[in-house]
């Protein structure tokens, strides 16, 4: 079953077309990778899907329901959750507090939210840092916090926007393992990533966009050998770490 179905989605900012007639389908339980050079429109596509702003044109279906222009908080309650490329922790609050904010999406009781948050932290091997102020975390931990918060809302589909950027190789491996584990728990994953090694290892399928338009789609191997993709990336310094 298709959990997310994006048809002909377009987003313009004034004269600039950031996303141009983009079509994307994700099957439940899949990991779909979205790649493309800087400024290709990846984050903008996420923002349209997650309700930050409505797309200028096209349709977005989540579990068969049209969600154009539906607000982010409503989408969250429906089970569509995202993380931010530029992490946005509640910096003055503890890690536990941050995750509890997410957990309150599924419960009204403080004790339950706390238990849920602790369980999530534990599943991410993060509970030792629960009392640290989020503003004092390292970048790797901030990314992890971003995921922890999102997980606490019990999403059906999770949109991850460059959660590995700025991480060291060992941390990247750890993150890949975490994301795979999430998928095994039944969460569908839609992930933007620049680190090729990671996205190749993770994705069932990959969509490549350039100037807002889809230029290739397929399995990691097929995409990696696609002529258009190589052309789009030519001269681009993408990370091959």
């Amino acid at each position: 079953m298709k959990i997310l179905d994006v048809r002909e989605m377009t987003k313009t900012f004034g004269g600039l077309t950031a996303v141009d007639g983009l079509g994307i389908e994700i099957e439940t339980g899949q990991i779909l990778g979205l790649i493309g050079p800087n400024g290709a429109g990846k984050s903008t596509a996420f923002n349209c899907i997650a309700g930050v702003f409505p797309p200028t044109g096209g349709e977005i279906y989540f579990n068969g329901e049209k969600i154009n222009g539906v607000k982010p908080w409503t989408l969250c309650r429906k089970g569509l959750e995202r993380t931010f490329q530029i992490v946005k922790p509640f910096a003055s609050k503890s890690v536990l507090y941050n995750v509890m904010v997410g957990a309150f999406a599924v419960t009204d009781k403080t004790a339950e939210a706390e238990a849920e948050a602790l369980a999530v932290l534990k599943s991410l091997h993060f509970e030792s840092r629960k009392d640290v102020r989020a503003g004092n975390l390292t970048i790797a931990d901030r990314k992890r916090l971003e995921i922890a918060r999102a997980l606490a809302t019990r999403p059906k589909i999770l949109l991850l926007d460059e959660v590995m950027a700025g991480l060291r190789p060992a941390e990247v491996d750890e993150m890949v393992a975490i994301i795979k584990e999430l998928r095994d728990r039944g969460i569908t994953i839609f992930v933007i990533e620049h680190i090729m090694r990671a996205i190749m290892a993770l994705s069932d399928r990959i969509v490549v966009i350039h100037f807002g338009r889809k230029i290739a789609e397929g399995t990691p191997d097929a995409v990696a050998s696609d002529e258009n993709v190589i052309k789009a990336y030519l001269g681009e310094e993408y990370v091959v770490s």
Partner: peptide, 26 residues
């Protein structure tokens, strides 16, 4: 301050976009 409302207020005050993504109508 120890209820759902308190968490939502604090979150929305500090990082509204993140709060919205976490299900809060700020």
């Amino acid at each position: 301050s120890r209820s759902k409302l308190g968490y939502a207020l604090n979150a929305g005050g500090e990082e509204p976009e993140a709060a919205m993504a976490l299900g809060i109508d700020v």
